[in-house]
């Protein structure tokens, strides 16, 4: 519950305060958000499976974000930033979908 509240508060604060994103971070924000979403879905699935460990969640969340940002950064340096971003989004999207399917099986038993 507290976790859901944290998400809601984050969205509300982001919408109301309109913080200025530093230009350095800006290109990595969307991919980092997608990576974090993947971690969250994974965490939700683990919770439903009853194998949720907060330490694992934290590490996977942070490492997902960092690795995703790193890939985009590397892609930018190599001149294939757009393609790599697409690749990362595709991979994360597939993972999110599979996690969502597992969650669905738990929640709807179907």
């Amino acid at each position: 519950m507290i976790a859901v509240l944290g998400l809601v508060v984050g969205v509300v604060v982001g919408l109301l305060v309109r913080p200025e994103v530093p230009a350095v971070v800006e290109p990595y924000l969307p991919i980092a958000v997608v990576a974090a979403l993947d971690a969250v879905f994974g965490g939700l699935r683990a919770m439903l499976d009853g194998i949720f460990v907060d330490k694992v969640f934290v590490v996977s969340f942070l490492s997902n974000v960092v690795v995703a940002a790193l890939i985009v950064f590397l892609g930018d340096k190599l001149g294939v930033g757009a393609q790599l971003s697409t690749g990362v989004v595709v991979v994360l999207g597939i993972r999110i979908f599979s996690n969502a399917a597992a969650i669905r099986r738990h929640v709807f038993r179907a």
């Binding site: 519950m1 944290g6 984050g10 969205v11 919408l15 913080p19 969250v40 934290v58």
Partner: peptide
């Protein structure tokens, strides 16, 4: 979900989700 608990895990997850929500809102905006 329902009975809210203030465990360490919940707080850490809430913090991370707060960051996620913040990034999401900023990006959407």
């Amino acid at each position: 979900l329902w009975p809210p608990r203030f465990s360490r895990a919940q707080l850490i997850v809430a913090l991370l989700l707060f960051v996620l929500g913040l990034g999401l809102a900023i990006q959407v905006r």
